[in-house]
Design a protein around this nucleic acid. Structure first.
Lengths: 152, 152
DNA sequence: CGAGTGAGTCCGTCAAATGGACCCACCTGG
DNA sequence: CCAGGTGGGTCCATTTGACGGACTCACTCG
């Protein structure tokens, strides 16, 4: 299929969607961010087609979300390590987790996230940094910063 | 293309990805949640193919994220209104906004979100509800709730 | 009476996802 | 010393969806 690209849109949601809104990307990133680093490990964990995975990893390297590192020389072997930018994506995945658990699962959660130091369950929540309150789409609007009268 | 489905996965990220990780879904939801309700309005705002939009809206109705309502009888006309489940997705979009603005935009933000009552800028942030602290993927692990010794 | 509106459907084309085989350099066990 | 992994891919045929664009059909408005 021809895929429409959004990476040149002004809207930050569109730019993020261009990177992340692909079936496999969130799962590939989940594996990378929770510690899997090697091509074959990820491929087997996700049962993803090898060429699709190769292409997704190449994209992640290209946009600077992971680094491809040579971890041995003979024969050359590579792995994939998240950058700061990649780790920042965990916020998005964490909130996807929270949404999926609350709204897309029938039974009580079969898997949970926890802090490996304290053992405590982790429950991501989204707030507005300025007010500390939850987001409310019905009260939210967009505006151009160069001309606040224009509603984007 | 054949698309692999994740809606039966245990992992909440996979379930959410199955719904949202499609190029158009975040943008369609952005429009719906920020107030656009009608097929033609959304189609023109996004410049999305009409049959693709029809299919995406049908999916959103099917999973209960929006409701299709008849708003006039002669001739029958329909619009699409987010449900509570749909409004809950705003958290995900808000965090995608934040990521895109911080990591995918070069120039200072051209568009911002604000509260239509107070006029204040909105900056979504993700915290752990229990500790109030930001998420840290390097400290995060998964476990099965039925058997905490199994690392998922 | 003709144009426009709203919410779609239908069609041909093109490209990406999929399953599966293949590759090749090195390492390991017997 | 040779067979069988292992790691990180590439290549191929098939299928399916995205895309652009035209068409529909029941009204309503001027």
């Amino acid at each position: 299929m021809r895929r429409t690209r959004f990476d040149d849109h002004q809207c930050p949601i569109a730019r993020t969607a261009d990177l992340l809104a692909d079936w496999w990307m969130p799962l590939v990133l989940r594996e990378l961010l929770l510690g899997r680093r090697r091509f074959n490990d990820i491929q087997q964990a996700l049962e993803i087609n090898r060429s699709v995975l190769a292409q997704r990893l190449a994209r992640l390297v290209e946009v600077g979300v992971v680094e491809r590192r040579r971890y041995q020389d003979h024969p050359p072997r590579y792995d994939f390590e998240p950058t700061d930018k990649g780790r920042a994506l965990w916020d998005v995945l964490g909130v996807m987790w929270q949404f999926g658990e609350r709204w897309l699962s029938d039974e009580p959660a079969a898997i949970e996230m926890y802090d490996r130091r304290t053992g405590e369950r982790i429950e991501p929540a989204v707030i507005d940094r300025n007010t500390g309150r939850p987001l409310d789409p019905t009260a939210t609007r967009r505006r151009r910063t160069d001309d606040p009268s224009v509603i984007a």
